[in-house]
Write a protein that binds this DNA or RNA. Structure first.
Length: 553
RNA sequence: UGCCCCGUGGUGUAAUGGGAACACGCUUGACUCUGGAUCAAGAAUUCAAGGUUCGAAUCCUUGCGGGGCAGCCA
């Protein structure tokens, strides 16, 4: 029952809470996104944390939309978020909630606070509130409306709700302490007037609660035990506690952890939105995006993301996780499940001069999984091999085909390069080779050894497909730290190969199918552009390449 | 500069007053019909100074460094 994995500080807090019976043994977490953008891998970390806790402690997990700002929120985002959370496998059962459904209750709570003399209607403009808030080192100035009577506040607040005042003309503020060293406690705004249509409430409301006021109430109403959020809300916790304590209602515990930062990408919704809106990428689900939908289209699996979240861990210090860890997580997963196939991306024709006819050879589908079985591949006189697998003047250590040299064709024969055919410009157009009939794969007739094995496809049977090679979106580790971050977009982040040659067994592949193109990487059939007539493959991640590394020295 | 949080190999995390460990990455080797996978080995770590203690990554003090906060965003 006990997990062997090391526990992060949040698990330790929960263990302690269970030991002291703080919540009657209950554990109830939630994931509270604002529907103003698509979810990204940082959210995935949070989802895995929150759902993982509920799962590990036999607790519950809610999905709740924190939709308190009608100006930024859209139904499209709600739908994408639900899809992404489900895809990740975080099971919220029937508990999908909306903060906007609690507006009436929140209003009542606000009236209570007014009656207690703990909240007041303020006529200061946004500009005036800012000016009277003070600074980091100086206290603020109390609003001239701070001491209105309870009756007047009640009347004004009701009329705010009725729509008697224009947008921005009044606010409801908590009466706390204008001199607090924590600026969040300097009479924070609880309600603002916004004559805007809400994606779910329509025009029912023209006053909307702010995050600080609403969030604790949402957690309280749902009976959340551990309200887990990111570090930037640490300074808000005293306010979270203040509202709940003044109201004397059920009071969950807020716990903060460090958000995920990934190297060579950006994570803020603002920047992600800009990449989409300004057309730097092909939508929120562009495979180069760190969004969950982008990762899905890119070929990442939920399992790999869960494993990644586990590897990253949970702590309170700001950190930059190396994207190599994500790549490890997906390789590790796909290595076990991806069917191995052969595809030639940048072809060079090979003619086997002493071979006639054709035959079927047996190939293993996945050496890591014998249950994946084998398949037959057709060998013919004319083939394509990868252009990079032949070199006229090879550097030291090159293990592939060279003039006069031998190499094994995967699952087939050992061939020897007899002649290099070039066009008028000196470009290699064809390799004329001879094969050794005694070296057929698995025949055991020859124990000849060669240094290398290369992949190939039959020129007669291979079909054409588009292959999209992706690389990291940015050229620098931390683009968000640059003022002109858009200048660091990697111009090589997408390389489209229009006519790659793919082995025939992939002809009927469906969107989402995953494969390993031997010696090259993991690929999946694109869910957006692929058609039965013209398949499109996305490269999820390359295979580790020791040779490329050696060459790079 | 006020308040809050945080400093452990290159990166991310663990060690909760008692031999600084795990993972990724990196290096080297073995094996290999994928220069993959696998296996083996290796380099590399407690921000600093004082203090408490038989003993400090851990507790205390100070300093230094990083992050957050002055939206009617979340």
């Amino acid at each position: 029952m006990e997990k062997e994995k090391p526990k992060n500080f949040i698990y330790e807090i929960i263990d302690e809470d269970i030991r002291t019976n703080k919540w009657g043994g209950r554990v109830h977490t939630r994931f509270p996104p604002e529907p103003n953008g698509y979810l990204h891998i940082g959210h995935a970390k949070s989802i895995c944390l929150n759902y993982g806790i509920a799962r590990d402690y036999n607790g519950k997990f809610n999905l709740r939309f924190d939709d308190t700002n009608p100006e930024k929120e859209e139904t499209e985002y709600v739908e994408s978020i639900i899809e992404d959370v489900k895809w990740l496998g975080a099971d919220f059962e029937d508990r999908i909630f909306y903060a906007s459904d609690y507006f009436e209750q929140m209003y009542k709570y606000a009236v209570e606070l007014i009656k207690k003399g703990k909240a007041y209607v303020c006529d200061l403009s946004a500009e005036e509130i800012r000016k009277t808030r003070g600074t980091l080192t100086e206290p603020g100035i109390e609003s001239p409306y701070r001491n209105r009577t309870v009756e007047e506040n009640l009347d004004l607040f009701e009329r705010m709700r009725k729509g008697e005042f224009p947008t921005g003309s009044k606010t409801l503020r908590a009466k706390i302490d204008m001199a607090s060293p924590n600026l969040n406690l300097r009479d924070p705004v609880m309600y603002r007037i916004l004559h805007a249509e809400h994606h779910r409430q329509g025009n029912k409301w023209c006053i909307y609660p702010t995050y600080d006021w609403a969030h604790g109430l949402e957690d309280s109403i749902e009976g959340i035990t551990h309200s887990i959020c990111t570090l930037e809300f640490e300074n808000h916790r005293p306010l979270y506690d203040w509202f709940l304590d003044e109201l004397g209602i059920y009071h969950p515990q807020q716990i903060e952890f460090a958000r995920l930062n990934l190297s060579y990408t950006v994570m803020s919704k603002r920047r992600l939105l800009q990449l989409v809106k300004d057309g730097y990428v092909d939508g929120w689900d562009d495979p180069r995006m760190p969004t969950i939908s982008g990762l899905r289209r890119h070929g990442f699996t939920p399992e790999s993301l869960w494993n990644f979240a586990e590897l990253v861990g949970v702590a309170k210090r700001d950190a930059m996780t190396d994207i190599a860890l994500l790549e490890f997580a997906i390789r590790d997963d796909l290595n076990k499940r991806a069917r191995r196939v052969m595809a030639v991306l940048d072809p060079i024709k090979v003619v086997i001069t002493n071979y006639e006819g054709e035959e079927e050879l047996e190939a293993i589908n996945n050496p890591e999984d014998s249950s994946a079985g084998t398949r037959k591949i057709k060998f013919t006189k004319e083939l394509f091999i990868e252009r990079a697998d032949f070199m006229e003047e090879p550097p030291k250590g090159f293990k592939r085909l060279i003039p006069g040299g031998e190499v094994r064709l995967r699952y087939a024969y050992i061939i020897k390069c007899d002649e290099v055919v070039k066009d008028g410009n000196g470009n290699i157009v064809e390799l004329r080779c001879s094969y050794d009939p005694d070296t057929k794969s698995g025949s055991g007739k020859s124990n000849k050894k060669v240094k290398g094995t290369i992949h190939w496809v039959s020129a007669k049977y291979a079909f054409n497909a588009e292959v999209r090679l992706y690389d990291r979106l940015f050229t620098v580790e931390d683009p968000a730290s640059k003022e002109n971050w858009l200048d660091y977009i990697n111009p090589q982040s997408l390389n489209i190969i229009e006519n790659a040659y793919i082995e025939p067994s992939l002809k009927d592949s469906k969107p989402g199918d995953i494969f390993q193109f031997e010696r090259q990487g993991y690929f999946c059939v694109d869910s957006k552009y692929s058609t039965p007539q013209k398949l499109v493959f996305n490269r999820t991640v390359t295979l580790k390449d020791g040779w490329a590394k050696k060459k790079g020295e």
